[in-house]
């Protein structure tokens, strides 16, 4: 029972969740019609799916190791694999199903590969599919988000001394408000780190800091009252 470490890792996890939500390619309803870049659903669903997969892999790793880095990294890898598979399937569906090329709507030249984007974009739309820079950004988002979720899981499991089930649902429940507040900050769709909306990140970070700090204090109270120990 180490209250400072619990609060520290919960706050870091919350901030990483918020950052991860900003990096993901969220297409929302327009992407479902192929008229916006990204995966065709909201931030919450994508982030919840990635975080849950990350928690599964982190929980499996936590059964045989006490290393914080190993547990957090395995959570990050789980979330990255999940989000990569989703983005790949989205690309396959858009390319072979709708016959449109993955192209970014927010930039004229891909910031990573320097490929031209504007000539391939259908007029009146906001891009299609998941192009290269967006794919890299989504990978980073999944990695960062999964890392944050697994950090919280580790803190709740080993420092707050909860059982595995309680730690998993507790970390998921702290992760979710942070990701959703980030989603409200984004307002709909975002492509990744090259999107102009990414500049709004500090606002979500401030809110996320406050909310996860309060949640961390509540976890410390719960852990102190149930497990006991010295503060």
């Amino acid at each position: 029972m180490e209250p400072i470490l619990i609060i520290l890792w919960v706050v870091v996890g919350g901030l990483l969740a918020s950052l991860g939500a900003h990096l993901l390619p969220v297409g929302g309803a327009p992407a479902a019609m192929g008229t916006a870049t990204g995966i065709a659903t909201g931030t919450v669903q994508i982030m919840l799916g990635a975080a849950m997969t990350g928690l599964f892999t982190a929980a499996s790793a936590a059964t045989f190791t006490d290393s914080l880095l190993l547990v957090a990294l395995s959570g990050a890898i789980g979330a990255t694999v999940m989000i990569c598979v989703v983005m790949l399937m989205a690309n396959i569906l858009y390319t072979f199903g709708c016959g449109i090329v993955p192209v970014s709507g927010r930039v004229d030249v891909d910031p990573l590969t320097k490929e031209p984007q504007a000539p391939y974009k259908t007029p009146q739309t906001d891009g299609h599919g998941v192009p290269n820079c967006v794919y890299v950004s989504g990978m980073l988002g999944g990695f960062v988000g999964g890392f944050g979720g697994a950090l919280m899981y580790f803190a709740l499991l080993n420092y707050a001394d909860f059982t595995a089930g309680t730690a998993a649902i507790g970390s998921l429940s702290i992760f979710v408000p942070n990701a959703i507040i980030a989603a409200y900050n984004i307002r709909g769709t975002i492509e990744g780190f090259h999107d102009p909306k990414f500049k709004r990140l500090p606002f979500a970070m401030v809110t996320s800091l406050v909310v996860s700090l309060l949640c961390g204090i509540l976890v410390v109270i719960a852990s102190y009252l149930t497990v006991g120990g010295t503060m």
Binding site: G28, V44, L48, V176
Partner: peptide, 9 residues
């Protein structure tokens, strides 16, 4: 801006 599900979750 993010759909109704977000607030329920």
């Amino acid at each position: 801006g993010t759909g109704v599900p977000s607030i329920g979750v």
